[in-house]
């Protein structure tokens, strides 16, 4: 990432305080891209942490629940972080594909599913049951993967 970590973190904090929506319109395109990257990184980190718990065979309920909540908190913000002018033609460093802006309905649909699955995941995490957590983890991860295949440039 080109942006200094501290700026990204400050932006994330600001957006969290301001409830996300209000602050987004005030961000420059570069800041918007940095923020959505930072948010996705947070979700990725949380997914990995949960995966690690599942691999151990006896997942720690506290760790799983805390990370599930991170994903559920971040997920609803992401759809708003793709305003016009933040795609690849903006010249900014982004893996977002132009299809996001030509097929917005599909993109928004996937974002909505992300929120639904993330909330279900918090519920599953609350049970502490490894099988339930594992099953919902696959469903949630499936949405991440589906959207990445459709709307993110393959790295």
């Amino acid at each position: 990432m080109i942006q200094p970590k501290s700026l990204v973190l400050a932006l994330a904090a600001v957006s969290a305080l301001a409830g996300g929506v209000a602050s987004v319109s005030a961000l420059t395109p570069q800041q918007t891209v940095s923020l959505r990257h930072a948010n996705y990184e947070k979700m990725g980190k949380a997914m990995k942490a949960i995966g690690g718990e599942l691999k151990s065979g006896a997942p720690n309920k506290g760790v799983v629940l805390a990370n599930a909540k991170v994903i559920a908190a971040v997920a609803p913000q992401q759809g708003k972080l793709f305003p016009a002018g933040t795609g690849p033609s903006s010249g900014l460093k982004t893996d977002a594909l132009p299809a996001i802006w030509t097929d917005r309905a599909t993109f928004d649909g996937l974002n909505a599913r992300l929120v639904t699955e993330a909330n279900k995941f918090v519920a599953a995490a609350g049970t502490g049951d490894a099988a339930a957590i594992g099953g919902q983890m696959k469903a949630l991860g499936g949405v991440c993967g589906e959207c990445h295949r459709k709307f993110r440039k393959e790295d």
Partner: peptide
């Protein structure tokens, strides 16, 4: 990128 699939030693390093 989904944080879903990983190698067996990835638990020892950051995302």
């Amino acid at each position: 990128v989904d944080g879903l699939e990983s190698g067996p030693l990835s638990d020892y390093v950051s995302f």
